[in-house]
Design a protein around this nucleic acid. Structure first.
Lengths: 197, 197
DNA sequence: GTTGTTGGCCAACACTTGTTGACAACAGTA
DNA sequence: TACTGTTGTCAACAAGTGTTGGCCAACAAC
C-alpha cells in the first residue's frame, strides 16, 4: 500500500483504484469456481460469496458473466524454449512442462471444464493452441507443412491426459506419478512433434 | 410396427405399452441434447420439445433428469475381438474401431460432454473404461500388472482425440481424415497397449 | 467545513429451471 | 352400459439464475 500515487503518467498503466483488492478477489474466486464447476454451474452468487462481496459488484466491475470469464481465463502457456534441448528430449520436456503448468494454474482447468459446453471458452482454447503451440511446432517440425497437424496431435494427447487425470479422474491415470507420466507420454509427444509419419 | 402383440411370456421382456413410441422419442431426443449441450444445458423442456410432447411426460416415464440421463447414456463400447489380429496391428485396429464408434453413436459424445461437469456422468465413464477397456488390456498386455495403467493411457489418447475433434473442434484435428488419424494415433495406442515402457 | 466521487450492500426484476398435481381423452374389460 | 387404468395436456409451484437500480458510508478535492 506504499506509494499510493506512483507514476502512471504514460504507457498502459491504469490508475490504482481503491477497489483493486476487491477486483482481484473476484478474479481469484472466479478462476476457482470456473475450474471446479465449469461455466454454467459456476454462479455469480457463488463467486461473490467466495470473494466475500455482493454479487452486484461482480457486474459493476466486469460487466457480465461472459466478460468475467474472459478476464479470468486470460492465459499464457509459457511454453519452454527448446532451443537448448537436444531433439530427442523435446517430448519429455514438453510433457514435463505441461504437467507443471496444469498443476500450478487453475486457469487451464477452468478453460477445459468450460470449453466443453461453452463456445466462448472453446474458442479461447482454439486461439491459445493456434497462437502458442502452433508456432512452436512450426519451428521444430521437420517439415513446416505438417506443423499445424503436429500441434493438433500434441493437443489431443496433452488435453486427453488432463481430462482423464483432473476432470474424469480415471484411477490409473490419477495414480501415475510425474516420472511415469513423462516416461509414457514423452515418446508420444516426441513422435508427434518430430518424427515422420 | 408389425406384430404389436409379440410374445413376452417369459424372460426379461416387459409388456409392450401404448406409450413405447413416446418413451423412445424422449430417449432419442435426450441423447441428442445431452450430446450437443451437456447435462446442465440440456433442459427437460428442450428435450420434450424435440420429442414433440409435454415436459411432464418426461418426468412420468423417467422419474427425474438424473434417471433420464442414466437411461440415455447406457452404453457398450463393443470393443473388437483382437484375437485374430496380429499384435502389430492392434493399435490401428483399436483406433479405427473407436473412430467408427464415436461417429456412429451420440451416447459417447453425450457422456464426454456431460462427464466434465456432472459427477454421475464421470462415474459412468470410469465404469465403462474399467469394465471394458481394462479387461481388454489385461488380456493383451505383456505384463498383467500394467494392464490398468495401459487402459488408462489408451483412454487419455482416445478421449483426448475425441475432445479436440468433436468438442473443441481444433481445426487441424477436425481436418484429419480417417486414414491419417489411424496412421498417427495407431502407433501411440499400440505402444500403450503392447510395448514395455 | 462542503462538495463530488467511489465502493459496497440491499432489494428487486424478469426469466428459466426441475418438478408436481389436476383434469380430459382414450383403451380395454366386465 | 359403467368402471379402471393409461396417455397426454395445461397450469402452476418453489427455487435459482443473471442483472439492474437505489441507497448510504467512506473517501478525495476544494
Amino acid at each position: 500500500m506504499a506509494g499510493v500515487n506512483a507514476c502512471w503518467h504514460d504507457g498502459d498503466m491504469t490508475a490504482p483504484r481503491r477497489s483493486d483488492a476487491t477486483r482481484a478477489a473476484i478474479l481469484t474466486a472466479a478462476r476457482e469456481r470456473f475450474a471446479a464447476d465449469g461455466f454454467e454451474r459456476a454462479t455469480i452468487r457463488a463467486i461473490a460469496a467466495d470473494a466475500s462481496i455482493d454479487p452486484s459488484l461482480v457486474m459493476r466491475y466486469y460487466g457480465n458473466k461472459e466478460k468475467l470469464f474472459a478476464a479470468a481465463a486470460e492465459f499464457d502457456l509459457r511454453l519452454p524454449d527448446l532451443d537448448g534441448v537436444p531433439p530427442e528430449g523435446w517430448g519429455a520436456a514438453m510433457v514435463a512442462h505441461f504437467l507443471d503448468r496444469w498443476a500450478g494454474d487453475e486457469k487451464l482447468l477452468a478453460l477445459l471444464r468450460s470449453g466443453v459446453t461453452h463456445e466462448a471458452a472453446a474458442e479461447r482454447m482454439r486461439e491459445i493452441f493456434a497462437a502458442q503451440v502452433g508456432p512452436l511446432a512450426a519451428r521444430l517440425a521437420p517439415d513446416p507443412a505438417s506443423a499445424a497437424t503436429r500441434a493438433g496431435l500434441i493437443a489431443t494427447q496433452i488435453l486427453g491426459f488432463a481430462l482423464c487425470r483432473f476432470v474424469l479422474r480415471l484411477p490409473p491415470v490419477v495414480d501415475l506419478d510425474r516420472d511415469a507420466a513423462i516416461a509414457w507420454l514423452g515418446p508420444t509427444v516426441q513422435r508427434y512433434l518430430h518424427d515422420s509419419v
